[in-house]
Nucleic acid binder design. Structure first.
Length: 659
RNA sequence: GCCUGGGUAGCUCAGUCGGCAGAGCAACGCAUUCGUAAUGCGUAGGUCGUGGGUUCGAUUCCCACCCCAGGCUCCA
């Protein structure tokens, strides 16, 4: 048998006896690596450790504490989950169970249309740990299509996958070795699963996992199909990594805008109003007002004109725009008035802006014409999808529509992107990438040529911006492609922020035209764009980004002044009056409670600056400053110096925490 | 819309295997006057999500609905 030669990731080469496996290779490199190894990447293909190596190959050993390693162990943990469920529910059908970000899931159909309850998770968890204690090997076998069908004849979902592969489905190839070879992994004589692999060598290599929750999920992600019972879990390479992940989940929960909105008295969702309909309390109202005022100012500077439109309109408008045709399900049902005239709450602002464009004849000299509106729209979101301020049924978009010529389009888009990123940075978001969403199959209107041109223009502008660009094939709106700006927040989550959409359709549908230099009528290009997306959602993202510690310019209350004793209260009010004269949002809490208690209260309210004044300060005209995020109060600060500091910090959109 | 879990005081939650509803915090009152994350005492606060049903009696059991959370699907 010929020797096998391998090249390792560091470029070094090794020779092993014929028929050596990746596991043998790991052993040859070091006993520690052999013990850690979970799988291997052979010539770019992820494979089992036990698979024989070809005579010449490039091999990387996959260890647990790597992205690939975690993916393998999560996938294997999903198999153990399926085995545990089939042990506890004989006759259960198992569908698919992939690794996902941070964990895995598996979908089941239980006998008698049974359902998992939360309590079942504990039983399943215990069964999984028993399977891991048994240290069952994952043994790979390959079969013909026919044998595969026979092998899985009691598992209808597996049969369906094999049949689909046989029929040429590309999507299902992930589940098997190839279009003609069915691969399966056997753990015990009683459990095998259709799977491309690879898997960890044996179940004993797993164990740092936790089952998280039960959910319903449609077979193949289609709501017309049977709904399966899905179990989600998380799995990691070590006890510490699992613990760290659970801590991170707690951190995310601590930042949850719904919780902070309650704690900081910013907004609420009175059940009297209905799902997805928020009210902003005075404190949340300040954040919102300051945001909106700043946005308006920037839009004035950016050459936008301000328009206003009503919340309700006759059906005709949305028939013309095409929204009723495509999104009637997502609109509030109409009210009938005036002998059958149907009126709708508006789900979009764009048609109104087109009508403003059309209100008189337009000249090319007016273009680009940029119309801005904080437009409140209503969308009848399905009951299961509303979520805090991020997915609501009534929301206000910072919406604008730019009408320009085809020639102006490129430059306008480029400027727009600069404008968007600048505004987002002003709110403290700094880490961006762009996503280009292209033509949605089967849903799009317009010609291929128009779509290609629009997509190409957007791609050029996006590339020129110098940010990472990912393509979202088929993710565009029905009337045009879009660029969306994705922002990463303080704990690394990404949020879709601004969207910029090109639209050749609406001007056509509404027959909007301008007169050009050639004295002929031309159709303008329309650019839809919202920078915050919705004001509500943007506030939610900022709250979570800052964990409620809003930068000073956005804080509902910027300074709280506390006298040490009640005979310092007069001075406290004087200090507050001086700050208020500077436009600072300041309050005094009189000394009815011990100082420590009042400090604590202000800290919990995440107020940027707590000013404490006592005997020394009254005598010398100074302040004690306890800044948010600091455990080290400053004493004897001059009032004038503090006023300057506040002025600068507010103007620069800074925070007390910033260095 | 579908699956799972939930809704008890302003908030966070305990409790009732069907028999007068509980705590902490917050609120209010009185006292306390204090230099950087909880001063003390007292008072008040509830149709136990809503509506039906079973029962001598329902917050508890049953049914329907509303709302919330986590998923699925959807997101102009």
């Amino acid at each position: 048998m010929a020797d096998v030669e391998v090249v390792l990731p560091d470029g070094s080469e090794r020779t092993l006896p014929g028929n050596s496996t990746a596991h043998d290779l790991a052993g040859a490199i070091g006993s520690r690596l052999a013990k850690d190894a979970l799988a291997a990447v052979v010539d770019g293909e992820l494979t089992d450790l036990s698979s024989p190596l070809p005579t010449k190959s490039t091999v990387a050993i996959v260890t647990p504490a790597s992205d690939l390693g975690r993916e393998v162990l999560r996938h294997s943990t999903a198999h153990v989950l399926a085995q545990a469920v089939t042990r506890l529910w004989p006759g259960a059908h198992y569908a698919i169970g992939p690794a996902i970000r941070d964990g895995f899931y598996y979908d089941f159909a239980l006998p008698g249309d049974g359902r998992f309850s939360d309590d079942d998770l504990d039983r399943i968890d215990a069964e999984m740990r028993a399977i891991m204690a048994e240290d069952q090997p994952f043994v790979r076998s390959e079969y013909s299509i026919a044998d595969g069908l026979e092998l899985f004849k009691d598992q209808p979902f597996k049969v369906e996958i094999i049949e689909a592969v046989k029929a040429g489905s590309e999507d299902d190839l992930a589940e098997v070795a190839s279009a003609s070879v069915v691969s399966a992994y056997e753990n015990t004589p009683n459990f095998r699963d259709l799977c491309r692999g690879p898997h960890v060598p044996s179940t004993g290599r797993l164990g740092h996992f936790r089952l998280m929750r039960v959910a319903g999920a449609y077979w193949r992600g289609d709501e017309k199909n049977q709904q399966l019972q899905r179990i989600y879990g998380t799995a990691w390479e070590s006890k510490d990594a699992l613990a760290a992940h659970l801590v991170q989940l707690e951190e995310a929960e601590r930042r949850d805008h719904r919780r902070l909105g309650q704690e900081l008295d910013l907004f609420s969702f009175p059940s009297e109003l209905g799902p997805g309909l928020a009210v902003f309390h005075p404190r949340g109202g300040i954040i919102r007002r300051v945001m909106e005022e700043y946005s308006r100012q920037r839009h004035v500077e950016g050459g936008y004109e301000f328009v206003y439109s009503p919340h309700i309109t006759k059906a005709e408008l949305f028939e013309t725009s095409g929204h009723l045709q495509w999104f009637a399900d997502g609109m509030y049902p109409p009210m009938e008035l005036d002998e059958g005239q149907r009126y709708y709450l508006k789900p979009m602002n764009c048609p109104f802006h087109v009508l403003i464009f059309k209100a008189r004849q337009r000249s090319y000299r007016e273009l680009p014409l940029r119309m801005f509106e904080f437009g409140t729209v209503y969308r009848y979101e399905k009951s299961g999808v509303v979520h805090g301020l991020t997915r609501v049924r009534g929301m206000t978009q910072d919406d604008a529509h730019i009408f320009c010529t085809r020639e102006q389009m490129g430059e306008e888009l480029a400027n727009l992107l600069t404008f968007v990123l600048g505004l987002l940075r002003d709110f403290g978001l700094n880490d961006f990438y762009l996503e280009l969403s292209t033509r949605p199959e089967g849903k799009a209107v317009g010609t291929d040529a128009e779509w290609s041109e629009a997509e190409a223009t957007l791609a050029t502008v996006a590339t020129a911006a110098g940010l990472e660009l990912v393509r979202d094939e088929g993710g565009g709106a029905f009337y045009g492609p879009k660029i969306s700006v994705q922002a990463r927040d303080a704990i690394g989550r990404t949020h879709q922020m601004s969207t910029i959409q090109l639209d050749f359709q609406l001007p056509q549908r509404f027959e909007a035209t301008y007169v050009a230099g050639d004295n002929a009528r031309h159709q303008p290009i329309m650019i839809h764009r919202a920078l915050f997306g919705s004001v509500e959602r943007f506030i939610a993202i900022l709250i979570e980004h800052y964990a409620g510690n809003m930068p000073t310019w956005l804080s509902p209350e910027q300074v709280r002044v506390l006298g040490v004793r009640d005979d310092h209260d007069d001075y406290a009010y004087q200090v507050a009056a001086a700050l208020k004269g500077d436009g600072v949002r300041v309050a005094v809490e009189p000394a009815n409670e011990p100082l420590g208690a009042r400090i604590r209260k202000a800290k919990l309210e995440k107020i940027p600056y707590i000013v404490v004044v006592g005997d020394d300060d009254v005598k010398l005209g100074t302040l004690g400053i306890n800044a948010r995020g600091s455990n080290d109060p400053e004493r004897g600060v001059q009032l004038a110096a503090f006023r300057l500091r506040l002025r600068d910090e507010i103007a620069s959109h800074g925070s007390p925490e910033a260095p």
